[in-house]
């Protein structure tokens, strides 16, 4: 089976800025693929090239086995796209927006209602409300509906959950799971690391480069070194103490714990714990932990920067 998206040695620059530096990867049909990276990593540029909106400087890019340069019209018929910013007509109502996008794709709401039903029922009570007056989560749901209305084979979602609260985010991802089960390939970008765990595979992107591609379950294998989780009631002091400790390579806050990565080759975290406890942190809680996506990303980031 041909991949839904295939990218080989894609590069793109804007004046002096290299937005994408010779990246390559494939997204399989029916796969939920996550692009994880901060703002300015080049994610939106990649989306625009894949959706035939911008031309690449070099490289081969194919969507549903069609070339993004030559076959752009055919591609446009078969993909759905949600740009980074909320891009619906704020002065049109929910129903008017949906109807408009259905018509310009040569279809009707009724024809593909099955696909959007689950999402649209939540929007239905606000049918006559202007899109600009919806809450952040609802706007994203409407945008998703509009992107789905013509039953696309590949869905491109550029940061669909940025600025959206955790509850709406979770609902949004549940919808993506369902769409994936319908056989739609989805490429989604997000700055939220916790969402990465919900993808089949993820690519970590920074400054136009892909640092690593893996499934969420195996990405922690990319982490090297020993990681210790610690907490105390005096978090800030603990953080500075750990950062200044010779055994510690880096230390960052992770939720209620601090995660300290030991120096390369050092596995003896118990002696670090003793040491810290002796420095007056009587209530210290410490244990060895496995790296999550965010740990991996941060390690890759600092390596890339060094």
């Amino acid at each position: 089976m041909k991949p839904a998206i295939s990218i080989q040695n894609l590069s793109k620059s804007y004046k002096e800025v290299e937005a994408l530096k010779s990246i390559s990867f494939e997204v399989k049909q029916g796969e939920l693929f996550g692009l994880i990276g901060p703002d300015g990593a080049g994610k939106s540029t990649l989306f625009r090239i894949l959706t035939t909106l911008t031309l690449a400087d070099s490289g081969i890019v194919r969507v549903m086995d069609m070339d993004v340069v030559q076959d752009f019209r055919e591609i446009r018929n078969r993909i759905g796209y949600m740009p980074g910013r909320f891009s619906l007509y704020q002065d049109l109502t929910v129903a008017e927006n949906l109807e408009f996008f259905a018509t310009i794709f040569g279809t009707t709401i009724e024809e593909n209602y099955d696909l959007i039903r689950d999402i649209y029922v939540q929007l239905e009570p606000f049918k006559t409300r202007p899109a600009g007056k919806l809450s952040g989560g609802m706007k994203q749901k409407l945008a998703l509906c509009c992107a789905l209305i013509h039953k696309p084979e590949v869905l491109f979602l550029d940061e669909p959950t940025t600025g959206v609260d955790p509850v709406s985010r979770k609902e949004f991802w549940q919808m993506l799971k369902r769409l994936k089960n319908e056989g739609i390939a989805i490429l989604v970008s997000t700055p939220y690391m916790d969402e990465a765990a919900l993808c089949d595979r993820i690519a970590l992107v920074q400054k136009g480069e892909i640092l690593s591609i893996a499934s969420p379950d195996t990405i922690n294998e990319a982490f090297h070194g020993t990681l210790v989780a610690m907490k105390s009631h005096r978090m800030y002091e603990l953080l500075t103490t750990l950062r200044n400790h010779p055994k510690v390579a880096s230390c960052y806050a992770f939720g209620e714990f601090l995660n300290a990565a030991l120096m390369d080759g050092d596995e003896d975290w118990q002696s670090l714990e003793m040491d810290i406890r002796h420095k007056g942190f009587d209530d210290l809680v410490a244990y060895e932990t496995t790296a999550g996506i965010e740990n991996v990303f941060m390690q890759l980031l600092s390596q890339a920067e060094a």
């Binding site: 909106l53 446009r76 796209y81 996008f101 794709f105 509009c146």
Partner: peptide, 10 residues
């Protein structure tokens, strides 16, 4: 940003 959507459509 709606122009992006219009352009991506048929």
């Amino acid at each position: 940003g709606t122009m992006e959507l219009l352009l991506v459509s048929p």
